[in-house]
Amino acid sequence: MATHLVTGAGSGIGRAVARALHARGDDLVLLARTRARADELETVFPGADVRVLDLAEPDAVDGFDAVPRRLDSMLHIAGVVELAPVAELDAHQLREQLEVNLVAPALVTRACLPALRAAGGTAVFVNSAAGLAAGASWSAYAASKFGLRALADALRAEEMGNGVRVTTVFPSRTATPMQEKVHQQEGGTYDSALWISPETVAATILHVLDLPRDATIPEVTVRPLVPWTPR
């Protein structure tokens, strides 16, 4: 039975991934931002090991060590977004996006590496189309995601000899609560039917996890069947 550590299991892509892994009987270690969210996750995913860890608090993340001895995968899916042009950047919002989207994955990865090495596991970083191209008002979020790609690239080079595979997934617009918030910030009308379903991205991630040991998928991009723009 495989064991997976998942961030962002409260909604969207993270919830879809956790649901799929739980349904096939795998063990889950879930990180929740608050005690209330942890209680909810314990109800939704019976038997999961749910830990409270606010990814926006670097000191707490720096001290994180609640990791099993073996991890078949570490799935970084949690993220936050606040759109604003550079001329109007809010320092707190800038720092929060960098802390949650980049610093926390780096520190949690550091804590998980011994367990990933022990299992020959896979590290998956769920990035974004904004990690490939940045549009107006996306500077802070895109900067965090460009950095996340660099983190994954460096980790891949460092850990290949230890049997740890590293994959970055770049989903474009996906029908999640975060995407609904983005549409509100952009002043657009949100229609979930236009965008990728979280289950489709989850299926892509499970394909990465289930890949035979003779290969790896360094990067994979998932886009909806609508014209793509780097907004």
Rank of each mutant, 00 (worst) to 15 (best):
D65Y: 02
L53K: 04
V182Q: 11
L151N: 04
P85E: 12
W195P: 02
M1R: 12
D153S: 12
A66Y: 01
V50L: 04
V52S: 09
V226G: 01
A48H: 10
P230L: 09
E42Y: 07
D54T: 03
T200S: 02
P227F: 08
T3P: 03
L206H: 03
R231M: 06
N162A: 13
I196H: 03
M178E: 10
A23D: 15
E180N: 09
H207A: 14
V81D: 05
M160A: 13
P218D: 12
A9S: 12
L41W: 05
S197Y: 00
R213P: 00
L225I: 05
H22K: 03
T189D: 12
A18L: 03
V226C: 04
L98V: 14
R149Y: 02
V6C: 01
M178W: 02
A203G: 06
D191I: 07
P85A: 13
G163R: 02
A111H: 07
A106W: 13
A136V: 15
D49Q: 13
V208Q: 06
A87H: 02
D65P: 00
L102Q: 07
G188N: 14
P105V: 07
F64P: 08
L41N: 06
A87R: 11
G8N: 06
P58W: 11
M178G: 03
A106M: 12
I77F: 07
K181D: 15
S192N: 06
L83G: 03
L194I: 00
I217A: 06
T174A: 07
V201M: 05
L209G: 07
G187C: 10
P114F: 00
Q185I: 03
P85M: 05
H22A: 13
A16Y: 00
P85L: 00
V50A: 07
A130N: 14
G147S: 08
E96W: 00
M74C: 14
A215Q: 14
A56S: 14
E158K: 07
A38R: 15
T221F: 10
A175R: 07
Q93C: 01
D153A: 13
D90L: 01
A140N: 02
T109Y: 05
T174V: 04
A2N: 15
G63M: 04
V169K: 09
T168L: 08
V52D: 06
P230C: 12
V220D: 11
R15H: 15
I13P: 09
V124Q: 09
R156T: 14
I196P: 00
A157E: 13
E42F: 04
L98R: 06
A140W: 01
P68G: 09
A123Y: 14
A106P: 02
L148E: 03
